[in-house]
């Protein structure tokens, strides 16, 4: 059958079992996972100094605290025994939750901001100044491997039809107003997801002059997805988390 239909049938089902089953090695390659420190870091100060984005800091005792919201997965800490063993379910509802080990914090953020939307959510993508990798990763959610539509996640062409704003990239001075306008245009109830370390804290660009600030300073953020860029499964999990359907939650 040399037709599109025949081709589609021949290729069969490609779609991932995620979130029913955990993410596979292919879906979550090494650098899509967060680094975890070894039990004992031999050269603690050396490791902290090696991190180019100051994601590592000293924790109580001889421990080390990693800030996943800064980590760009450059793997320089691998020389100090860190291994990349983070999970796909890396999104957190608050910025402090990205610290490993966590610090005691105040009242938590809204746990499930869009629970009332049930099984369907519409998503609008905003590029606040990204390198285009996160854009492609978010768009990859529509490909047959992830097929976000099967989970009730749909992309819209206007924020007026959307429930969720996915923001990628470092918010530049020029994009602050457009991002605010997009947020305003979203009808309530709504949620904002910061996709990647760039909107969370600037990532590797935290000191470049074009950065206007973190996304949190512009609009309230409901989910932080660390990664540079985060794997599509992580973005998927973050969106599902807004609806209370996160894999971590269903398992827990």
């Amino acid at each position: 059958m040399s037709s599109w239909v025949g081709q589609a049938i021949r290729r069969g089902r490609l779609t991932t079992r995620y979130p029913a089953e955990p993410a596979t090695e292919l879906e979550l390659p090494m650098l899509a996972r967060a680094p975890r420190p070894p039990a004992v870091v031999p050269d603690r100060l050396g490791a902290i100094a090696a991190c180019p984005v100051a994601a590592l800091s000293a924790a109580g005792g001889s421990g080390i605290r990693a800030d996943e919201g800064r980590c760009i997965r450059c793997a320089r800490c691998a020389a100090h025994g860190f291994d990349f063993s983070g999970s796909a379910e890396c999104s957190r509802p608050d910025r402090a939750g990205l610290l490993v080990p966590p610090v005691p914090s105040g009242p938590g953020a809204r746990a499930v901001p869009l629970r009332q939307l049930g099984r369907s959510v519409h998503v609008f993508l905003v590029d606040a100044g990204s390198c285009n990798a996160c854009n492609h990763e978010v768009l990859a959610l529509t490909n047959p491997y992830y097929d976000a539509q099967r989970l009730g996640i749909f992309f819209t062409n206007s924020p007026r039809h959307a429930d969720v704003l996915l923001v990628v990239g470092v918010p530049t001075a020029e994009m602050t107003e457009p991002v605010r306008r997009a947020f305003e245009a979203l009808p309530s109830p709504k949620a904002v997801v910061a996709v990647g370390v760039c909107p969370i804290g600037g990532g590797v660009f935290q000191s470049t002059p074009g950065l206007a600030g973190s996304l949190e300073e512009l609009v309230p953020v409901d989910a932080f997805v660390p990664g540079c860029p985060p794997a599509p499964v992580s973005v998927l999990d973050a969106i599902l988390g807004l609806l209370g359907r996160s894999r971590a939650r269903t398992e827990g």
């Binding site: 107003e177 306008r181 997009a182 245009a185 309530s188």
Partner: peptide
């Protein structure tokens, strides 16, 4: 009863 919220027309992010 939900409060009515009026927002500017969405012009693809332009002013």
């Amino acid at each position: 009863h939900r409060a009515v919220r009026r927002v500017p027309v969405w012009m693809a992010g332009s002013a």
